[in-house]
């Protein structure tokens, strides 16, 4: 019983980390209309930003927001230079390939700049653990869980109750209609892309003390992000949260009770099953083709 509870708590905490990655992906897919195959690269940039800043003597808690700002800055540059110029109005395979190549290029650049070896990122939370009724949670994991909930809630409230947020929702629903009612659609898309990759950077910065910073760290995050987003339904924030928690708990249970070495296959099997049973995902809305 204790083991089961501990496993579920581990899974929920793990899922909270996934949720931050997935919320960025789902935002970009819903509003910009592209599957961001470069998401993992921004995740890695967030972690490396944290590594560099803490190496300069900056406190971890300051390094995280600054790293997120760096990722957002790089997001703005790539959006203006590549994403907007090559992808809009182009619904076929072009965007997939460009984003994939962009991700590969960023990862190769990270290897050339920092080497292929992992770099540890110190966190003041260290190895502290909380013991709640016999269930152990490390302080860093609790911090990630808290940040994740705050970020998701902020995203949800912002989209629901602010003018900019409502404009984003409008663009997601009908970009042409939004354009006709005076919304600056390209600006909104840039905003959504930058927020999405900034969320990836935040996730990288938060997870860096646990997994260390290494160039291909984003691969795992990207794969998990996609599985979560498909499970929850592309474009839905509550779906991203639900999918992330489900995936986290399922992974933890599978790892504890079935097999560690087969766990990486579990996510994909869940995704394929989801797409066969509920093609829109658990909380996705029916998607119109944008051709």
């Amino acid at each position: 019983m204790e083991l089961l509870l501990q496993t579920i708590v581990n899974g929920v905490v793990l899922g909270a980390g996934y949720a931050v990655v997935a919320v960025g992906l789902t935002l970009i897919f819903g509003i910009v209309g592209i599957a961001n195959f470069a998401h993992g690269a921004y995740f890695a940039i967030g972690a490396y930003g944290c590594y560099l800043l803490t190496g300069q003597g900056l406190s971890y808690f300051l390094a995280v927001p600054v790293a997120v700002l760096i990722v957002a800055g790089i997001g703005v540059i790539t959006e203006l230079a590549i994403v907007r110029r090559s992808l809009y109005g182009d619904a076929h395979h072009g965007s997939l390939i460009v984003m994939f190549a962009l991700g590969q290029a960023i990862i190769a650049a990270l290897i050339l700049l920092f080497g292929p070896d992992p770099h540890p990122v110190p966190s003041p939370l260290g190895q502290t653990t909380f013991n709640v009724f016999g269930i152990l949670v490390t302080a860093q994991r609790a911090f990630i869980f808290g940040c994740s909930m705050v970020v998701l809630a902020a995203f949800g409230l912002w989209l629901g109750f602010t003018v900019k947020g409502q404009q984003i929702v409008a663009v997601a629903q009908n970009a042409r209609g939004a354009l006709y009612s005076g919304i600056n659609v390209p600006m909104i898309r840039t905003l959504a892309f930058v927020l999405g990759v900034a969320a990836a950077g935040l996730a990288g910065a938060l997870l860096a003390p646990i997994v260390t910073a290494y160039p291909t760290m984003g691969h795992g995050a990207l794969i998990v992000g996609f599985t979560v987003v498909i499970l929850g339904g592309m474009g839905s924030i509550s779906g991203a949260l639900l999918g992330a928690l489900l995936m986290g708990v399922a992974n933890a249970l599978f790892e504890t009770y079935v097999s560690v070495s087969w766990t990486p296959a579990l996510g994909w099997i869940l995704v394929i099953a989801t797409l066969l049973l509920w093609p829109q995902g658990l909380r996705g809305r029916a998607q119109l083709h944008r051709h």
């Binding site: 599957a35 296959a265 994909w268 394929i272 797409l275």
Partner: peptide, 16 residues
Amino acid sequence: LTGAYFSIVSWGLSGV
């Protein structure tokens, strides 16, 4: 599945 969905799932199969 088509488009991004097909690409992602087919990528996933290679992972499996």
